[in-house]
Amino acid sequence: MPITYTSGEQIEVYRFNLPITVLVPLLALFLQAFLSWKLPFFSIFDLPLLVVIFFAVARRSQVGGMLTGSIIGLLQDSLTQLPLGVYGIANTVVGYGASSLGVRLDVENAGARFLVTLFFFAVHEIVYFSVARGLVRLDLRWNWPHEIAAAFANAVLAVLLFAMLDRFKQRT
């Protein structure tokens, strides 16, 4: 199995330079907004969520992960008509969880990334639905086929996307 338990000392911690830290989330937001309009099927993907998972796992810092998730989530909320915080809370939880997992597990290979994304997509959806229904009173319906399809689609995209973003990693 590609996921291996390692001690904290054995896992490499990466950092990213400032332009990448700022531009990659903005680019993800832009592509999400633009491509969802041009290609309606693209709205099944959640590029900002994948970026949150990538940064959180690579940095392996729980505080860094949750702040990344929080900021990207709030920016994502800004493009919707919904109150700020629905995506923010969901991405904060995912950022914290992904970085916590990154501390304990080596998730550098494609199989591990696929499973991690599958898992955190499910976490994201559960938190999102809970917040949207419980706090904002949105009439969302849980659609199993759609959620499963979206989870697998995002997991596949994550494998490709993470491989591209690996080029921007810098060893600490």
Binding site: Q62, S70, L74, G85, G88, I89, V93, Y96
Partner: peptide, 24 residues
């Protein structure tokens, strides 16, 4: 510490949500 920060960040966002929902 990390869990405390997580709870703090989540609480701030939930509070913000509540204010916005009221403002709408």
């Amino acid at each position: 510490r990390n869990v405390s920060i997580l709870v703090g960040v989540l609480f701030a966002q939930i509070l913000g949500l509540a204010i916005q929902v009221r403002r709408v």
